[in-house]
């Protein structure tokens, strides 16, 4: 039994140590605008990615867009969709389908030359997409 414990502890330590890697320096920032699409709960989003320090557009990345509902962590995770880059450098387009109306956290996962994640909180309604409501305001989404 003791040997099992030691082995498991060793594996855990190795896993933790293996995670200490080199630092990736480029950070991304993103501007997101979404509008309701043709179908119910469908939204078309335009995402502008830029280097957060130099404001240079970030082009040629693989971008996937997922969505989480903060009021229920680890559930309602919408299957991430790929975003295609537009003519304009650093501008990407994605079409997402949500499960319900309310406050969502859009998760922008960047990979390729720059690896990063940007989280944007937006309130998705039937006919518009806007700022999220303050956390304790009445009328916030509840199950």
């Amino acid at each position: 039994m003791r040997s099992i414990i030691c082995t498991a502890a060793a594996i855990a330590m190795l896993a933790l140590c293996g995670l200490e890697g080199a630092h990736a320096q480029v950070r991304a920032k993103a501007g997101v605008t979404c509008k309701p699409g043709t179908e119910k709960l469908q939204y078309d989003c335009i995402i502008k990615l830029a280097n957060s320090k130099t404001n240079e557009p970030l082009s040629g990345l693989t971008l996937t867009v997922g969505a989480d509902m903060p009021s229920m962590p680890a559930a309602h995770n919408v299957r991430p969709v790929g975003a295609a880059e537009d003519q304009e450098k650093g501008t990407y387009k994605a079409r997402i389908v949500l499960e319900m109306y309310g406050d969502w956290a859009l998760r922008l996962d960047l990979s390729g030359p720059v690896r990063d994640r940007v989280v944007k909180r937006l309130r998705f309604e039937r006919d518009r997409v806007g700022e999220t409501t303050p956390a304790r305001a009445p009328g916030r989404h509840r199950h």
């Binding site: 293996g18 995670l19 200490e20 890697g21 080199a22 990736a24 950070r27 990063d116 994640r117």
Partner: peptide, 17 residues
């Protein structure tokens, strides 16, 4: 909380952790 990005940990490695 960018630790996994700053340290180049990909999603699969974090899953293993």
């Amino acid at each position: 909380i960018r630790y996994i990005f700053d340290n180049n940990i990909d999603a699969f490695q974090f899953l293993l952790l």
